[in-house]
Amino acid sequence: MLSTGVSREHILFLRQSKVKSLGEIGEFFQSNGTEEVELVPVSKIKGLNRGTPGFSWLDHAEMIAGNLSPSSFQSFQQRLEETSLESFREWLKSESFLETNDVVTFNYYAECDEYYAYEGNHRTLWAKLVDAKYIKAKVNKYHYNSAKHSNYKKKL
């Protein structure tokens, strides 16, 4: 990645930063039922639907963790190699990016201010790898539901 212009500092960050999972607290949130296209701040993306919590973003890129397809991963690597780093970052937030394969979709948990990839795990990972500021995607918004939380506690 250094050859494409990604900084050493960012690569170190990717090695240290771990993919998260909402775990059981995700059960305490409820969707408002709408999807909106947004520019998602990549810095607020914390997890992958097909990722392994506790492993780094770089572990996922190296196929040490997660359930990602090497061929899909490599197709985006090839795209990056055929263009510049800045062009790749711009593509991630463009209208044409939305038309690539399936639409990237995130679940956004408002009270946590965190996004978790639901669809588009490879493209999300690439956004993290190249230190993109934004990725254009559909977003499902979830809000804390105290009644669901109370019901969960009663079952314990």
Rank of each mutant, 00 (worst) to 15 (best):
L129Y: 06
L80K: 00
T105N: 03
Y108Q: 03
S56P: 12
W57G: 04
D102V: 10
P41L: 12
E82H: 11
V40K: 02
Q16M: 10
T52G: 04
K20I: 05
L48R: 04
G54V: 12
F76Y: 07
F76E: 00
T34P: 00
N67I: 12
V19W: 02
A127M: 10
S94L: 06
K155M: 13
H143M: 01
A137P: 10
L68C: 07
M63L: 15
E27A: 08
A127R: 06
L98C: 07
H149N: 02
K141H: 15
S146G: 01
N121I: 09
N49D: 13
S75C: 07
Y115H: 01
E114H: 02
A137L: 11
L39A: 05
D59I: 11
F28P: 02
V42N: 00
A117S: 13
D113S: 07
G47V: 09
E99Q: 09
L39G: 02
V40Y: 01
S96R: 10
S75G: 03
V42H: 03
S17V: 07
L58K: 09
Y115Q: 01
N121W: 01
F73A: 00
E114L: 08
A65E: 12
V42R: 03
S87A: 08
K46F: 06
L39N: 12
A127Q: 05
G120N: 01
F97H: 15
V130R: 03
V42P: 05
S21G: 11
G47F: 07
V139L: 08
W126M: 08
K153M: 12
A61W: 02
E27M: 05
T105D: 00
Q74L: 12
D59L: 05
T105A: 05
L156A: 06
W91P: 05
R15S: 15
K93W: 02
G47R: 09
L68M: 10
K93F: 06
E86W: 10
K141T: 15
K44C: 06
L14G: 06
F28R: 08
V104I: 15
N67D: 14
S96F: 00
I11K: 10
R89C: 05
K155H: 08
G51F: 13
F88L: 03
N32I: 08
L12P: 02
Y142C: 06
Y116G: 00
R79M: 14
K20L: 10
I64K: 15
I11E: 09
Q77S: 14
Q74W: 07
E62M: 15
F76P: 06
E86D: 14
E119I: 15
Q77D: 14
